[in-house]
């Protein structure tokens, strides 16, 4: 029997209708991927690539034009599925006349959880909102609203965390704290689907990545596959013509022969170092460096 994945997206397409005679906009075109149990999957792409549209389709906020989405083999927005999901929207906002404690209590009641004050205090402490429990949300900064959003998402100990740009606009310390919480949740057993612009975050914590561009799937695979197992080396030499330093990246297998050939040409070698391929290189290569 095939594994039941927390999230499975098969041939998903989403078109948005426009005014008559203008046709429709293809936001996402025929993409397929999945999130396996206990995995952290990064979902990366430039602005307008279709990341948020895909997430909204997964959550049942948008109707699919084509394809199929299943969460633990069930349809999106099914009550049984919804109970197991924690969601952090992009730029979260809440009714600003309430305070975090009120929100946590009401969400707990709506989710059918026991209202345990001490638990919510602990949760707010965990996301860094200690001392702000009874402050109206209207006084919160963007970062604090994001922390509150994280608290609401973690409240039910979800089996799948769906995060849409959770660290966008956060300072480096807050980003680190967010990353640590994501890793803790993953350790607890939760699968994570993380959409982000910040490639270094994805590279640091994700097991796999899905790269989207112009609504199309450009690459998908484990970090090891994407970044490549082959070691590359960077050789810096001084050019005879210009007198400036010139860098050259070559595979490990060709390293010795290349050094021999440089020596033969009597070119001074400044340094030889290991060249690490970054997710940014993979992303730029996959998307052709294009900004649509």
């Amino acid at each position: 029997m095939a594994d039941v994945h927390p999230l499975q997206v098969v041939n998903l397409s989403k078109q948005f209708p426009r005014k008559k005679r203008l046709g429709s906009v293809q936001a996402v075109a025929n993409i397929s991927f999945n999130v396996r149990q206990g995995e952290i999957v990064g979902f990366i792409g430039h602005n307008g690539a279709g990341k948020t549209t895909t997430i909204k389709c997964i959550l049942g906020l948008l109707k699919l034009t084509n394809g199929r989405i299943s969460l633990w083999d069930d349809v999106p927005a099914h009550p049984n599925v919804r109970k197991r999901i924690g969601y952090i929207p992009e730029n979260p906002d809440y009714d600003d006349s309430f305070h975090p404690m009120e929100y946590l209590r009401m969400f707990a009641s709506m989710r059918g959880l026991a209202d345990v004050n001490s638990e919510w205090m602990k949760l707010l402490k965990r996301v860094g909102l200690t001392g702000w429990e009874t402050t109206r949300i209207r006084q919160f900064s963007k970062g604090m609203r994001q922390r509150m959003s994280l608290a609401l998402a973690l409240q039910s100990n979800p089996d799948l965390l769906i995060m849409d740009e959770p660290t966008g606009g956060l300072d480096p310390i807050a980003r680190k704290e967010f990353r640590e919480i994501i890793l803790e949740e993953n350790k607890r057993g939760a699968s994570v689907f993380l959409s982000s612009h910040i490639l270094s975050d994805v590279e640091t914590i994700c097991d796999r990545a899905v790269i989207l561009s112009g609504g199309k799937l450009m690459a998908e695979g484990s970090m090891t596959d994407l970044l490549g197992e082959e070691h590359l080396y960077r050789i810096t030499v001084i050019s005879r013509k210009t007198g400036e330093e010139v860098e050259e990246t070559i595979p490990e297998a060709d390293l010795q022969s290349r050094i021999d050939s440089i020596r033969k040409d009597n070119l001074p070698i400044v340094k030889v170092e290991m060249a690490l391929k970054s997710l940014e290189d993979v992303f730029m290569a996959a998307t052709g460096g294009e900004k649509q």
Binding site: L59, G60, Y87, Y94, D95, M110
Partner: peptide, 13 residues
């Protein structure tokens, strides 16, 4: 204000 999204996506139909 996007207050709707977290409500409809998770706890409420």
């Amino acid at each position: 204000t996007r207050t709707l999204m977290p409500l409809i996506a998770v706890p409420l139909a």
